[in-house]
Every structure is written in structure tokens, then in C-alpha cells.
Design a binder for these strands. Structure first.
Lengths: 239, 239
DNA sequence: CGCGATTTGTGCACGCCTTCACAAGCGCCT
DNA sequence: AGGCGCTTGTGAAGGCGTGCACAAATCGCG
């Protein structure tokens, strides 16, 4: 299933046509590197792997290996060209297209997400808000008017929406997911605490806020039981 | 809870490990299992690993191995006792204590988190809201009054707060984290898009909403480039 | 022009996690 | 009581990710 092959031979300069297949762990870190690059803001032309790794909170060897996977643009003895590397990561992540995103469910959480400027500032355009509650339809949030979920197919086609965010209660999430898929959406970010079933070819990522707290709670519990024991040794457990 | 009756370290004499040390990957899945258990709601006394795995969206072998790590309470030929397993996982996660949580930053996102009932319904009590903006102090959100960040040490001590949530802009996050640590908080859930530096013994988990979208964007980009290539074979990439 | 300082790119080993496959154990039915 | 079917618990194998340590490459300077 997985083969190790390097797409780019070291002799081909210029274009990067072939799509490298990156390890999943690397993909998850690229956005971190990108954020770190944007936060540099001190006008340096280049940055070393050590410096960028520190800014992103990772090991420098890991960073170099990650970047090497995408046929990186570093210069030995100097470092990475900030502008070039930024552009390269943005290209790989497909952020140069400012993808259209729709959001379904403008309840408590959805309301906040609709107004979250972190989306707009980092490569995305929220172009439509939907809800099934007629009372909420028509409300304006951050310059967008909430539409009824029935309008999804039409709007999705008009705006070429490929990414959908689900911020509904769990009971409605699967139905909404089906609607999104039917409307042509092929990537879903799910905030509802439930498992979604989708056809092959559709990607789902899940964010469960309570689960994150529960994991922290476990570590609290563990730490509490350790301090009650003799011979406890302190150890860093940072992220 | 019940007696610890499994000594899984045959070499250590006498000292019963008060706490099983679970693989990190297992810990991250326990909340999923717990949610699946709560969602059963069909009154069944027992459930098989196959059934629970399906409800949680994982492989059944993985689930069995996970549960075996905590000295599981299953019966061969029958399955797991739902009530017992639920209690066991809740105990391990430390959820039987309804831990006190404070939230710093009641802006756009923090406002929504303060009102998110998923926290309350899954083992946590939000007991205090803080903000540095004097204009926001005094506002009431979901029955809690926003206090100034300067009151944090006092309130944290009174309420025995061990977990803090950061929902401030990135520029304020590190300072807030320092304040939380100084106030005795030992677990932090960080929604700000930045790297936090904390002392050893303090756990940090990070949720970056934009990163999740960027990862989806990558997969969109990949899928788009695959369909443009010959011999492209679609492949399932489930949750 | 050559040398040393610096930094990237990567081979390699190790440990964690996942998955398969099956033996061990339990309850039910005859 | 005994056998049979079902399900758990786990040994073993393979894959993936991480981090070390070093060779290769580049720049600046004398």
C-alpha cells in the first residue's frame, strides 16, 4: 500500500509538478511551520532549521526531515529562504486558492466559528452559513446571512464549496454530513461529538472539545496519584 | 472505587502500581469509548468489543487491547459489562470528580466555550471566567460573571482549579499561561495559535481550528491533483 | 584559491502503535 | 455433565515515526 519513493530527482530544478505523498504526521506539522514562518516578522531573509524548529516547538531534525519530504529549498550553511519556504508550504497545503468553506449550524459554537477571524487570516473564506432552524435563518453574522440548509446544494455549486464545517448537535451531524456529501463537499471538519460515516474519497477530521479536557483530566488524575506515592520523580510532559 | 487487583508488573515486589501507565494513544481513545458507551442508551447490560468498536469508529482488536491495558472487565463469550466499563473509564479519566475548570479570554471564541454545554455534560464544571479587558469584566455569561484576570490567583485557590482554558489572542497567551501556572494550574487547553512554554509537570494540549482546516485543504489539493493524473486510484481515507 | 565554520539532508536504529490470528475462557443447550 | 459456539485477551509481526549522528554542501575570509 505504501511505497517509499522520491518524486523529485535532485537534478530537476524549477517546477514542482508531481505531488509528493507526505507522511500524515508531516502534513499535520506543516501548518505549524507555516504559522511560525508568518510570526517571524523580523524581516530575516533566511532561517535555520534550529530557529524555525524552536519557533514551531519541535525538534530540528524532525523539521529538516519533514521539509526534505517536499523537496525542500534549503541551502546548506545558510538555512531556508523564508519567502520561498512559505510559498512552498502554502502551495502544498493548497492555501494559495483561498478555499471556500461553508458552516452548518450557527448555534452557540457555530456562531463563534463564523466570526473567528483565524480562518480568514489563514487561507479560507467562509462563504455561507446554514441552519435548519427557521428562527435563525435570516440572521446576519459577520456580514453573512444565515440560510436554510435546503439551499445548500445550490449555494455549494455556485461557490464551488469543497470544505464544510459541522457545528450542529450530534443528533443532526450525520444527516448534515450526508447533505454536504450530496452537495459535492469532499472534506468535512466535524465539531459534533459523534462518529460520521462518509463515502470513500471524503475526508473527515473531528474536533471534540470535551475529549481534549478529558485527556487533561486523565493526566491530572495520574499526577495526583503519583504525588501520593514515594519515590516520585518529576518528568517533563510538555506538548 | 474498587480494589486494584491486577499486578501487571511481576518484577516489582510489593509495590502495587496505583495507576496503570497507559500508552498515550490509548488515553486519547478512552474518551471516545466513553462517549460511545453513553450513547448506547438501549439498556443492554453488556456489549461486545465489535459493537463498541463500531460505535466508537475504531478497529475491534485495538479496542480490546486498549481495554486490556486497564485490567479490563470483560467476560469471554459475553462481552463487556456496560455499567462497569463506563465506571472504570470514568475513574481512570478522573471524571468522577467533576473537575473545576477556568476559562481565560471571553472574546469571540471564549464566549462560545463558556456556553458550551458539552463541558458540563461530560465531567467538568466551568467555575470562573477571566478577561484582561475591563470592558468585559462584570458581564454575565451562562450564569457566570466575568472577572478580571488579576483575581485569578485568589479564585484558583478557592476553587482548587487545576485545569485552565486559554481562549485569548495569541499575543496574550504566553502571559496568561504563566499566570495560570503561577496560580497552581497544572493542565492547560490552549486555543491560541502559538507555542506555549511551561515548566515540567504542566500539561498543555493545543487546539488550532485553522490547522484542522489546513490539513483538510491539503487533502483537497492532493485529491485534485490525483484526478488530473492518469492511473490515479481513489482510496478511502476514513475518519 | 583553499580552508574552516556552519547548516542541510539522510542513513540507521530504536520504540511505539496497529493489526492479525489464535488460544483461553465462559455460558448455554442438549 | 459435556460439548459447542461465541468473545475476550494477547503473542508476534510489520509499519510508522522519531531522533541521533554524520557526511555533503555552501559561504565567507584570509
Amino acid at each position: 500500500m505504501s511505497e517509499q519513493r522520491h518524486g523529485n530527482t535532485p537534478g530537476t530544478p524549477g517546477a514542482v509538478p508531481a505531488f509528493p505523498d507526505l507522511p500524515e504526521a508531516t502534513i499535520a506539522r506543516l501548518p505549524e511551520y507555516l504559522r511560525a514562518l508568518h510570526n517571524l516578522a523580523d524581516g530575516a531573509e533566511t532561517i535555520s532549521s534550529e530557529g524555525l524548529a524552536a519557533a514551531a516547538g519541535v525538534n530540528s531534525a524532525k523539521l529538516r526531515k519533514d521539509l526534505s519530504h517536499l523537496g525542500s529549498y534549503g541551502t546548506r550553511g545558510v538555512g531556508y529562504d523564508v519567502a520561498l519556504l512559505t510559498a512552498q508550504i502554502e502551495y502544498i497545503l493548497g492555501l494559495d486558492q483561498r478555499r471556500a468553506v461553508c458552516l452548518v449550524g450557527v448555534g452557540n459554537l457555530g456562531h463563534a466559528l463564523a466570526g473567528y477571524d483565524g480562518f480568514a487570516s489563514r487561507g479560507f473564506r467562509i462563504v455561507a452559513l446554514f441552519d435548519a432552524d427557521a428562527n435563525r435563518v435570516g440572521e446576519e453574522i459577520s456580514g453573512l446571512v444565515v440560510r436554510h440548509i435546503d439551499e445548500l446544494p445550490q449555494v455549494a455549486a455556485e461557490e464551488s464549496i469543497a470544505i464544510g464545517v459541522i457545528a450542529t448537535p450530534a443528533s443532526a451531524a450525520q444527516t448534515v454530513a450526508d447533505d454536504l456529501v450530496a452537495a459535492g463537499v469532499t472534506s468535512i471538519l466535524n465539531f459534533a461529538p459523534c462518529v460520521l460515516t462518509v463515502p470513500a474519497g471524503v475526508d473527515v477530521r473531528k474536533v471534540d472539545l470535551a475529549i481534549e479536557l478529558q485527556i487533561l483530566s486523565f493526566h491530572e488524575h495520574r499526577k495526583a496519584s503519583l504525588t501520593a506515592l514515594p519515590g516520585g520523580r518529576t518528568e517533563a510532559v510538555g506538548s
